[in-house]
């Protein structure tokens, strides 16, 4: 199964289940508040939650993305070492 079919299966099952509850196709009686107030807004709640999670996740990782100036400094030193060494061995480096 590809990731796309996995996702499609998941959404298909979830949507069917949701519609069944929403339109009371099943012999289940939910509490009145759930049936009338919670169910109709559930998809929007899920969407907003996922959006907030995504933004939070990306934002957190951007903020904690480590800068490594020490790696740059080390590299600069090694670049001149390498260039000097190779130049002395006859490599044409500007």
């Amino acid at each position: 199964m590809t990731r796309a079919t996995e996702a499609a299966t998941f959404f298909g099952i979830t949507a069917t289940l949701y519609l069944a509850l929403l339109f009371q196709w099943l012999p289940i009686t939910l509490p009145k508040t759930v049936q009338e107030f919670t169910l109709p807004v559930l998809p929007w709640w899920a969407l907003v939650t996922f959006g907030a999670y995504s933004l939070g996740n990306i934002g957190y990782h951007v903020l904690t993305f480590r800068d490594c100036p020490e790696a740059y400094d080390e590299l600069q030193v090694q670049i001149s070492q390498a260039q000097n060494d190779l130049r002395s061995k006859g490599v044409s480096i500007k």
């Binding site: 990306i58 480590r66 800068d67 790696a71």
Partner: peptide
Amino acid sequence: GGVYGWDLKRKV
């Protein structure tokens, strides 16, 4: 791990 020389836009 980390990066050097990336501005905020590139990180985002």
